[in-house]
Each structure stands twice: as C-alpha cells, then as structure tokens.
Simulated scan of single mutants.
Amino acid sequence: MSSPSRDPWLDNAKMGLVTLVVVGHLLALLPADGPGGRVYDFVYLWHMPAFVFLSGYLSRGFRYSPTRLWQLVTTLLVPYLLFEGALAWFRVNVGGERLWDLWLDPHFPLWYLLAMVAWRLVTPLLRPLWGGVLVAVGISVAGGFLAGDWTRWLDAPRVLGFLPFFVLGLKTTPEALEWLRGRFPALLGVATFAVLGLLASSFEAWSSRPYLYYRPYALLDDPTSTAVLTRLLMLLAGAAGALAWLTLVSRIGGWFSRMGGATLVVYLFHGFAVKELEYLGFVAWAQDRPWLGLFGAVVIGVGVALLLAAPPVRRVLERVVDPFDVAHRRMREAVRLTGVVHEQETADRAAARSVPAGR
C-alpha cells in the first residue's frame, strides 16, 4: 500500500518520466533521420526539463545540515562511483570497448547524479533569491561559453545548462502546482505538446541534437548569437513541456504510482540493458526497419522500466543502490519495536532519494 504522505500525481509523473528516460536512450540507437529520430527529438525537448523541474520541486526542503550533506554522499556520490565503475567494467568486458577518463567523463545516464549534488548544494542560496530563475537562465547561457577539453569533465556545461529548470522547481510552491490539476490547464497542456510536436517535426531547420544536451557553443556549427537564441528557445520549450506534462499526468494512485519510488533503481540499472541491446546488434537490425525499430525501442524500453521498478526486483536492487539505507532500515525497525519511531529521519531519507533521472 502506498504511503499516505505520498502524492500519486507526483509518483505517476516521476515513473512516467523515468520510463521515457529508458525509451529515449533506446531511441538514440535508431537512425536520426528516421521516425525514431523525430520521436527522440520530441521527447528530449521536454522530458529532461520535466525531470529536472520535479527534482527541484522535491529538493525545496534541502538545507545545510550534517544529515542532509551526508545523504548527498550516500544516495548520490557513492552510487555514482559504484555504477560508473560497474558500467565501465561491463562495456570493457562484455562489449569490448575502450574507455578513458573514467569517473571524470560520466556515462550517459550518470551525469545526473553529479548534477543533483551540485544543484542541491546551491538550493539554500537560490531558493530564497529574488529573481533566482533569471539568475539561473543567465548561468545557463553563460555556461555555453565554456571551452576546452576539460568541459567534458563531470559534464559541467550540461549541469549549468539545465539549472533553470531545477530553480524553477525550487521556486514553485505546492499552491502554484495545484493549479496544474484543473481541466483548463490540461487543455493548455495538450496545445503545448502539439506545438512541441511541430517544433520536433522541423527540428533540423532551427536546431540540432547538441542543443538538447546543452553543449558548449564552441562545439556547435552556429554563430554565437544564434546559439544563444536557440538555447533560450530550448529553455522556453523545456519549461512549457515540463508544466504541460504535469497537467496531463493521472492523479489516481495504483500499481504505476507505487513504482514512483523506484526511479533511482530504474535510472541506475537501465544503462546495462541499453548497452546489452546495442551489443546484440539492435542498431544494425533497426537500420533497415525504421518503424519496427521504433516499435521495438518503445516496447523494450517500457518493459525494462517496469521490470526494474517491480516490487520484487526493486527490493533486491535497492540493496545495491543504497546499502547505507539497508542499515538505516534495520535500525529504524529496532527503534520501532521499542515504541519510538524517528519519522523525520524517514522523511529526510525519502526526500534525498527523490531523483527522477536522465540522459
């Protein structure tokens, strides 16, 4: 049974977004000029911004305290070190790949853990700051001017690029979010996705894939002024899509919303499935079957996400994702048996693990 303190609306939103993360990474294996490429462009215009927005909203209570700072280490930095090494081992020993700059140049799913550490560290500074969203937009635009080989270290340009969505989440109050639950906002959400669909259908005419990842301007083929304007358009489209997503998400609890607490498990383990599918020849197979490849990527992606979030699987994998939490659970159980329950510690732990993930 779901905890009464959890909002099934947000859990549905998180689980839906992490499912799109998995699907998106499989769509990346399809030809960019085929139907899979158009769907990829549409999804990446808004799904990562939505994820970052929710991460910011769920991080509003972060503060500088020994408990919260230690949780950054145990729930984000430790998993990053473990899974970065594990995925590297998998790529070298299973896929026969060669890798460089391990832990400095994050794998495709794992940059988000480092981003969450950086974003949460600035939360107490940016949340009360008047005009914090505009400041974050300025930081995002300025981050595009970073240049040099070092910029790939810890994916710094992307961390700065997505910052406005996180700060927008920090600034959003529960009362403001409540407005998105109405019927009229849902109609606006449908209209917004229609516009984003049109933008995705002509994506190559006004943008390119590196803009979706907030790459430095020096790596783009456009003049700096065009790159800055395109980034601003990306920020606007991403924010609109993030809010539109929330207007359309179901508010009803059930088996899907209960999986919303497993987003970190799905996020950390799905990279192995994506790489294995690549090693099995999915790229070559889909090359001549564009529509079948698109169907396969969607079905497999949804299946992987649901499998990893299924309660029996989740309970096992959580021991790997956060071994420190296993000890905490045992301690809390021992305390509960004596009649004393540390509810605040449980709430803090749940908030620290609310990481809706991405590319």
Rank of each mutant, 00 (worst) to 15 (best):
S2M: 13
S2I: 03
P4M: 13
D11K: 03
D11R: 04
N12A: 07
N12H: 03
N12R: 03
K14M: 08
V21H: 12
V23D: 06
H25A: 04
L26P: 02
D33W: 00
R38M: 14
F42Y: 00
V43F: 07
V43C: 03
H47A: 09
H47D: 09
P49R: 09
G56D: 07
Y57G: 06
Y57S: 08
L58D: 00
L58F: 11
S59N: 08
R60G: 06
F62T: 02
S65F: 08
T75D: 08
V78F: 05
V78R: 06
E84H: 04
A86W: 12
W89C: 07
F90P: 02
R91Y: 08
V94C: 11
V94W: 08
G96I: 10
E97S: 13
F108V: 04
Y112K: 03
A115I: 02
L125R: 09
L125S: 00
R127G: 00
L129E: 07
L129D: 03
V133H: 04
L134R: 11
A142M: 12
G143K: 04
F145Q: 11
L146C: 01
D149A: 15
W150T: 00
W153C: 01
P157E: 09
V159F: 02
F162W: 14
P164Q: 11
P164Y: 11
F165L: 15
F166I: 08
L168C: 12
T173W: 12
E175L: 13
L177G: 09
R181V: 09
G182Q: 04
G182D: 08
G182V: 09
R183V: 09
R183M: 04
L187E: 11
T192N: 06
T192S: 14
L196C: 10
L198I: 11
L199N: 08
S201F: 07
A205N: 05
W206I: 03
R209F: 03
Y214C: 13
P216K: 01
P216S: 01
Y217F: 13
A218P: 06
V228I: 14
L229E: 09
L235N: 00
G238A: 07
A240G: 07
G241D: 10
A244G: 05
W245D: 00
L246G: 07
L246K: 09
S250L: 14
W255R: 14
G261H: 00
T263I: 01
V265Y: 02
V266T: 06
H270M: 13
Y279H: 12
L280R: 05
A284W: 01
W285H: 08
W285D: 12
D288V: 12
L292M: 12
L294Q: 10
F295W: 11
V299L: 15
G301W: 08
V302K: 06
A309I: 07
P311T: 11
P312G: 12
V316G: 10
V316F: 14
E318D: 14
D322N: 15
V326R: 15
H328S: 14
R330A: 15
M331I: 15
E333A: 15
R336Q: 15
G339K: 08
G339Q: 13
G339R: 07
V341P: 02
E345V: 15
E345W: 14
R349K: 15
R349N: 13
A350Y: 02
A351V: 05
R359H: 01
